[in-house]
Simulated scan of single mutants.
Amino acid sequence: MARVNLLPGPVPVDEAPPTCSAKGCRAPATWALSWNNPALHAPERRKQWAACDAHREHLASFLDRRGFLRDVEPVAAPPA
């Protein structure tokens, strides 16, 4: 997966967009979902899932039901 920036605003990528994290999906990701498990991670720690438009709501809902979802940011287009 390409590195993503955890700063506010569109999430830039260094190369091609990462692939969606949904099981079996190989679509390019258009969203970065930042999350952490408060029982395991320090409050400032952020893990990333990538999501395509079709799976954004499903993945965000999965994380939110568990209290893990922190931010959802668009993935910026790679530099030309």
Rank of each mutant, 00 (worst) to 15 (best):
residue 15 E to L: 12
residue 41 H to C: 02
residue 3 R to K: 14
residue 24 G to A: 03
residue 64 D to G: 08
residue 7 L to Y: 13
residue 9 G to Q: 04
residue 45 R to E: 14
residue 60 A to Q: 04
residue 8 P to N: 04
residue 43 P to V: 01
residue 29 A to W: 05
residue 28 P to V: 07
residue 61 S to G: 14
residue 59 L to S: 08
residue 68 F to W: 15
residue 79 P to I: 09
residue 53 D to C: 04
residue 15 E to H: 15
residue 72 V to A: 09
residue 66 R to W: 09
residue 49 W to Y: 14
residue 1 M to G: 15
residue 74 P to T: 06
residue 38 P to R: 03
residue 77 A to W: 09
residue 53 D to Y: 02
residue 76 A to H: 00
residue 67 G to D: 08
residue 9 G to T: 04
residue 44 E to A: 14
residue 21 S to Q: 02
residue 25 C to H: 04
residue 43 P to Q: 02
residue 47 K to C: 13
residue 2 A to S: 14
residue 18 P to Q: 03
residue 49 W to V: 08
residue 9 G to C: 02
residue 25 C to Y: 09
residue 40 L to C: 11
residue 18 P to S: 12
residue 41 H to K: 01
residue 44 E to P: 03
residue 37 N to H: 11
residue 30 T to H: 10
residue 43 P to W: 03
residue 79 P to L: 10
residue 8 P to R: 06
residue 43 P to R: 05
residue 10 P to H: 08
residue 33 L to F: 07
residue 47 K to Y: 15
residue 26 R to W: 03
residue 3 R to S: 14
residue 13 V to W: 10
residue 59 L to G: 08
residue 68 F to D: 04
residue 11 V to T: 12
residue 34 S to R: 12
residue 78 P to D: 07
residue 25 C to I: 07
residue 34 S to P: 10
residue 72 V to D: 05
residue 35 W to V: 00
residue 60 A to S: 12
residue 11 V to N: 02
residue 8 P to M: 00
